[in-house]
Design a protein around this nucleic acid. Sequence first.
DNA 1: ATGAAAGCGCTAACAG
DNA 2: CTGTTAGCGCTTTCAT
Lengths: 331, 331
Amino acid sequence: MGQPATLKKISEQLNLSISTVSRALKNHPDISENTKRKVKELAALMEYEPNAYAVNLRTNKSKVFGLIVPAISNMFYDSFISAVEVEARKFGYSLMILQSGDDPLLEAENLKLCKLNRVDGIFISVAPDTLSTQLLSKYRESGIPVIFFDKVPDAINADTICMADEEAASLAAHTILKYKKKHVLALFGNADLSITKKRKQAFLNVIAQHGGKIKTSVHCCKNADEARLATAEALASRNRPDHVFCMSDELLIGAMKTILRAGLQIPQDISILAISNGFIPGLFYPEITYIETSGFELGKLAIKRMLENMESITAPKAIILPSRLVEGGSI
Amino acid sequence: MGQPATLKKISEQLNLSISTVSRALKNHPDISENTKRKVKELAALMEYEPNAYAVNLRTNKSKVFGLIVPAISNMFYDSFISAVEVEARKFGYSLMILQSGDDPLLEAENLKLCKLNRVDGIFISVAPDTLSTQLLSKYRESGIPVIFFDKVPDAINADTICMADEEAASLAAHTILKYKKKHVLALFGNADLSITKKRKQAFLNVIAQHGGKIKTSVHCCKNADEARLATAEALASRNRPDHVFCMSDELLIGAMKTILRAGLQIPQDISILAISNGFIPGLFYPEITYIETSGFELGKLAIKRMLENMESITAPKAIILPSRLVEGGSI
DNA sequence: ATGAAAGCGCTAACAG
DNA sequence: CTGTTAGCGCTTTCAT
């Protein structure tokens, strides 16, 4: 391969100036068709590729987006990332992906990395105790669009893209009521997260409005194992629930462990409803009925909004992705 | 934030030359402690960050690795990526992640992107009909280390990091023999991939050596759905298998769909063994017994090897991650 | 239609 | 200990 081709080398070979070569390669109207052809041929032959760093240094555009998530290996984020990557590519952008591990310090460090690499925009799902909201508004002010997704700081005036948390949870509650369940075991996630609060409140509101005909046992579980135990406890009690609701895949996994172990028939012995992107629900038989929250769709919306911002920064917008019921056979 | 600080601005404020400022910031021994202090203070105040593009243009080092996988949202790759990201960060490297979607053309395009962005090294799991092996050896020759992982082109003299494919498959076969199964439905992946060839051959070798007491039906399935159908067909035949072996999670998912639908008891009616990282097997009850292949561990090995290459390029090495049997209750 | 020249921000000889 | 200079590869204004 020798040394990579540069404009200079091409220009020397052709006895042209660097600028002419540059223009020819860009189809500048000033350049004659003849020279364009010659230049392009030689460029192809020499496998010329513009040096992104020189371009960026000159233009102050990197054609790279930063994307910060708590963790890549997570059923939700990986589909989000996947979607963003595919769409970004169509417009010539690449992705620099960083993990914060839910650590505010790491998150701040990631943000610095983004700045260092002069990313053209940032997608971020913030850590629980984020320190970075100030930093992020600075970026925004200095012309780097920031799109918050999924986990969004409270009360922020910025572009945000979220699932319809309340809507999903009330849809879940309504669905459960429709099927005339008597006793629901409702499993929610980490009680400190705003997503948990929102979903729980919306869910319980609907149940409460319906009057007292349905009994509800609520648990907040930090992980799959706690969900497994909570379910086991509920099944062992004299007043066994006839339905389990799980606000996330993780909880569903835990609950299913117990239910399968107990040898219960779904939905005859116990029915199930989850909020999920559909992957885990599809693994079981019958497939679990779920309220869809698609990282993929969210990703598409996020990149769309980002590209709008690339054109011109407009007033911040809070976008909410509606959710829908996907019927499996678990209820 | 105004305009970002530069060496020039700092030097003007302090009436020093740009180079002195540059050196001071780097703790160059030539510079007096006094100036160092002054420079550093002002730099901090002005929130100076070196412009990565200028640095890269100068030094021809980007501190970025390219990572190309068929798909990010894949149980195996996401844990691999996660591991690489965490380790790379410790050494000041970031990751540019690209998806090939198993499309050789996209893969080649991704490689170009890597080149364009002057990545310092490339991790790649190649697409089935990769066109890129030549391109990749060129990169290697021109000083960009390439680490192949998981899916590796046949007969290549390069750094490769793989699961112990043969070992895992023969371990699987031995396990199945140990349990005295009579008729095995063996599901393998895309027949064009070397990983499939290796696993299939090793598996069948062990079976063959054992003599003819066990019947084996072999299928190559391109995806979960084909595995589902192949399993359904096998279950419907007069000569129903008493065991299913799946060389990957995807096939396991397909096979399990059919088995659960048929209402078969595991392991009484039919037993199961898979090669997996353990996530999917853990979702079922009884948990599926599997031969472990950890993306996380593989990732750690890959980045370790890459960093060795950053020091100095040495002779290519084929690294193999040993596998082990994890007992569930499915056999 | 083409060229010359300046400069993006930084590093690294070389020269004092 | 500090400054001067050249140049990485490219874009872009201003000439011609």
